[in-house]
Design a binder for these strands. Structure first.
Lengths: 261, 261
DNA sequence: CGCATCGGTTCATTATTTGAACCATCGGTT
DNA sequence: AACCGATGGTTCAAATAATGAACCGATGCG
């Protein structure tokens, strides 16, 4: 392992529940000699990547990361990040992919990538408003929203966009539980007829849901194999996009234990 | 220079006007062998600190910095604190306010708040690098830096950004003395033409200067009354922000003694 | 075609990293 | 007070990793 990689790996040990680390602790956590940890931390310190608290001389992340993050944001705006992921998702699944974000209590489609593989495909408009109860994306978000907010939405009159739309709050809550269990949401023709969509949630830095990405296919083309493939790709894509957007998935285990390889 | 420092210094060459850099360019910019640059960038790539654009295989900042910045903010909510103060300052003065921090010997703009009162206003980029001698913020910091560090900076070639820029070390030292006397620094068109800026220093826990906040107005709008108003608001804001960041202003006895390599 | 550039790779030379042992210091315990 | 087990920080010979000139194939340009 190169020295640079080793130094940067030290930074991985800073996590929300352990934001400051002493020298000896760091050496133990990273499995390196104390002298090595000291030298690496000193170099990170000089570069502003870590700083020391006056009290116990413990180390914590430094201000340099703020500059880099600001520049990263300026370089790769959210939209472009999403486009990369959605294009790959559309390419991989052969179907239309899109991202929707929570904006002022409404769910708005923001970016989309159309499949190029098939003659018939689901088409999308950016900036259109989706319903929470009638779409895969909405359900994925609903399932990860704080109880109070979800309850508010479910207590409003729920319109049946098609004959297939589920509007019974009790049934919707059951679907939400399924989403939390499986990680992905499914919706068949609940918003537009003949559209079979899968969706997975996106999370912000505070582990709160900020939106969702979805893959929408014509019902006629859906098979168990394709559905399985979409679910796997979608889960991985959502996780990657959450990361690229600077977010953190919720749950006790932040970085590990996901079923996608 | 250690390898880690060298690798991290590569990241310094990403700036707002040059967000992506090719391998050869990076080697030239950083003054290292191309093979070295390649190896360092590869390690940074593996750690997610940079990524490559599909097209020309140029490098740009990667998503890892977002996670670190989010965690840094969770640990030390500097950005949020600064934003509060800067917004109030911008509102109070009707002009653009921004904060810059010392990072690895350079002065980097970190947060800004634009005025909403006027049609014309000074605009800012986060993460751009300011000169010490050519800006109000730089001067405010220079005036409170330990003698040795200030001398080092003043001994380097000082670029004249505009015809107005003061580059004579003797005159700069006189200005620094003024800053120490009055508590605020002033700069008129020394960095960008037609920008009239006031600045005040920020201090860290050990009473060392860590950065500055500034108010930048178009020269045409500046009056003695406005300048006086800005100076008062700025001084109060700087003091308040220093406090919120857990810093302490230097006491009557300027005990600037430390062991910097 | 020739020339210049690009990203990436190789390998003998060289300089940096490494880690066991070492301080001085700090808080508890006896 | 003496002791103990921590801590952050430092030293130096030995081992390892970094270095850079030269090279490769690809691409772009007149």
């Amino acid at each position: 392992m190169g020295t640079v990689t080793k130094a940067l790996s030290l930074l991985d040990h800073f996590i929300p529940v352990r934001p400051t680390i002493g020298l000896s602790d760091m050496a133990r956590l990273a499995g390196v000699n104390k002298a090595t940890a000291y030298r690496l931390l000193s170099e990170l310190h000089d570069a502003g990547f870590v700083e020391q608290t006056g009290a116990a001389r413990e180390y914590r992340l430094g201000p340099a990361v703020l500059r880099l993050a600001a520049l990263r944001e300026a370089t790769v705006p959210m939209r472009e990040a999403a486009l990369d992921v959605l294009r790959e998702l559309a390419e991989d699944t052969g179907e239309t992919a899109h991202m929707s974000l929570l904006q002022g209590g409404r769910l708005v489609t923001t970016v989309h990538a159309l499949s190029t593989r098939h003659g018939t495909r689901v088409t999308m408009d950016d900036a259109s408003v989706l319903s929470f109860h009638g779409t895969g994306s909405g359900l994925a978000i609903l399932a990860h929203l704080p109880d109070a907010e979800a309850a508010t939405i479910l207590s409003q009159p729920l319109r049946a966009h098609t004959p297939e739309t589920v509007t019974d709050p009790a049934r919707l809550r059951a679907l939400m539980a399924d989403v939390r269990r499986s990680g992905t949401a499914v919706n068949i023709g609940g918003f537009e007829k003949d559209v079979y969509s899968h969706a997975a949630p996106l999370f912000g830095p505070d582990a709160r849901v900020i939106g969702a990405i979805a893959v929408a296919a014509p019902v006629a083309r859906m098979t168990p194999d394709l559905a399985g493939h979409i679910r796997v790709s979608l889960a991985r894509a959502a996780q990657g996009l959450t990361e690229r957007l600077g977010g953190t998935p919720p749950g006790p285990l932040a970085t590990t234990s996901q079923h996608a390889a």
